[in-house]
């Protein structure tokens, strides 16, 4: 069993679990970065170096920076830690955890029939680019619309307005 695969996959899962159990937001963001980097390794192993690069640049880079910015703007984390502790009692997380485990079990049960063999051949950025600006050009248009909508939304919501009583 290749060590690399095991390492990357387990690091991804561990990172994700750490993200949802941290009390301090900055720690969670750091673990999220770890998760994304590990996931980028998984993408490379799946033969998708382009996706891996994007994952590192955009997810672990840009989006996480956005998170850090917001956390910095929101301010100190100390009282938050106590409050999070208050919110994270077993009574609060037991039910959801059971639900999520149930879903996980069902999905795994459903996937048991898929063959676990076969080695993927890498898909180069060239292939992706050709299909992006060939048959999937609508996708590019859609993504641009989506990003524009997001931009307008963020601008509108985040604009500083005088408070109306």
């Amino acid at each position: 069993m290749p060590v690399m695969i095991l390492f990357a996959a387990s690091l991804t899962v561990i990172g994700a679990v750490m993200v949802i159990t941290r009390r301090i937001a900055v720690h969670a963001v750091l673990w999220l970065v770890v998760t994304f980097l590990a996931l980028a390794c998984v993408f490379t192993l799946l033969g998708a170096p382009f996706a891996a690069a994007l994952e590192v640049i955009i997810y672990a880079g840009a989006i996480m920076v956005l998170f850090i910015f917001v956390i910095m703007m929101i301010g100190p984390a100390q009282p938050e830690s106590d409050r999070e502790k208050e919110w994270l009692r077993p009574r609060a997380w037991l039910g959801p955890a059971i639900l999520a485990t149930l879903l996980c079990g069902e999905l795994l049960f459903g996937l048991r029939a898929t063959p676990h063999t076969g080695t993927p051949a890498p898909i180069t950025p060239r292939d992706v680019g050709l299909s992006l600006f060939g048959p999937c050009v609508m996708m590019v248009e859609l993504a641009s619309f989506l990003l524009l909508a997001g931009l307008v939304t963020a601008f509108h919501i985040g604009r500083h307005r005088p408070e109306t009583p």
Binding site: P2, M4, I5, G95, T101, C104, L111
Partner: peptide, 29 residues
Amino acid sequence: MTALPPGDALLLAVILFSTGLAGILIRRN
């Protein structure tokens, strides 16, 4: 370089998805 079979990647995806779902359900922040 070793390669990951796509079937195994699906398992990883399922676990990640459940973890994320649990996070949404558990955290109030």
